[in-house]
Design a protein around this nucleic acid. Sequence first.
DNA 1: GCCAACGTTGGC
DNA 2: GCCAACGTTGGC
Length: 157
Amino acid sequence: MHYWLMKSEPDEVSIDDLMAAPGQTLPWFGVRNYQARNFMRDALQVGDGVLFYHSSCATPGVAGLAEVASTPYPDRTQFERDGKYFDPKATLEQPRWVSVDVRGVRKTPLLSLARMRAMPGLEHMAVLQKGSRLSITPVTAEEWRLITERLQAGEAH
DNA sequence: GCCAACGTTGGC
DNA sequence: GCCAACGTTGGC
């Protein structure tokens, strides 16, 4: 069992979109970075916990909890010739990029990036490191505990 | 294999 | 829109 933080631009796929999807499940697609791809291909397991993070928006932060709902499979957007995720070097025989399905567990009050930076115990969290741009990063069990406890405290108000 | 140029990410 | 940080490309 591992934990991950996965970024999504809410203009593309928000936590509301995820919770409204059939089975609260959507494919997580569009990753075009090898390090992120390798996490998905080699380390993600069905049932892993996911912090669903909104990026490139007014207030970035964790917007909900989710879980990995499939093993990796070829990201179909790499073959969509007119799409923004098209990769001319990918072939059906040798796909480069993978997707996984993500199932939303619940929407939470937004835990902003600024608040996360202020939380003791998250100093070493991958997504908070300077220059961190990966769309998927590992979360330690302790970081997961701190964040989910904070989210529950937020919901109690 | 080096590295300059260029492209992308993403917070602010 | 700015810009720091990082990744990729391609000439040599």
